[in-house]
């Protein structure tokens, strides 16, 4: 019986989990779409002048670069270049952590003067960045697990669904920020 079940699990073609992951991301994107709409419904295009623009740009570039390195890691493992894969994956994790530090440890303390109880912009700003940071955090955790498995040689060409899935999730988190960054820092 258990052999049959395992056989079934192996026989499932890659497009099945891939489709499932896309559905999951579609569902997740509704959360961010709601928050984005709430930002414009409640606050219009208002944006406080004292937002730290340099920091906003810096963390945006960090996250974009992390997507770039994540992409390199995925290509590397598909071509069997394990050390390139690990190097780029580690870079992605570090950039992710830098992003989190930028948001939670630098931007939030600076933004405290419009923190929730006092201002409406704070409500949407902290909720949106917080929700996104939570996803970045979970992405960092997932990538770290993949890194750990990768060092043990769990992945290679043709057996890399774990890497592909984790990297897709990471890109998704990046896409969310693609929309959040202009909505929070750039609109007027």
């Amino acid at each position: 019986m258990s052999a049959l079940r395992e056989g079934h699990a192996i026989a499932v073609p890659l497009r099945v989990p891939r489709f499932g992951l896309w559905l999951f991301l579609l569902s997740e994107s509704m959360i961010f779409a709601t928050l984005l709409s709430a930002r414009f419904i409640l606050q219009g295009t208002y944006r406080p002048a004292e937002l730290n623009q340099a920091l906003g740009l810096a963390i945006t570039l960090i996250l974009l670069t992390s997507s770039f390195t994540a992409n390199r890691a995925e290509i590397a493992i598909a071509h069997g270049k394990t050390s390139t894969f690990l190097r780029n994956l580690l870079a992605t994790i570090i950039l992710g952590i830098l992003f989190l530090i930028g948001v939670v440890a630098v931007e939030w303390p600076e933004a405290m003067h419009f923190a929730p109880p006092s201002s409406g912009y704070g409500t949407v700003f902290f909720t949106m960045t917080g929700m996104h940071a939570a996803h970045v955090f979970s992405g960092v955790v997932i990538l770290s697990l993949i890194y750990r498995l990768g060092r043990r040689g769990a992945f290679g060409p043709g057996r890399m669904w774990g890497v592909e899935g984790a990297v897709k999730y990471w890109h998704f988190v990046d896409i969310v920020w693609v929309f959040f960054y202009p909505a929070l820092y750039l609109v007027r």
Partner: peptide, 10 residues
């Protein structure tokens, strides 16, 4: 936060 509080932009 003040999503639904009209006094604070909600």
């Amino acid at each position: 936060t003040g999503f639904f509080d009209p006094a604070r932009g909600g």
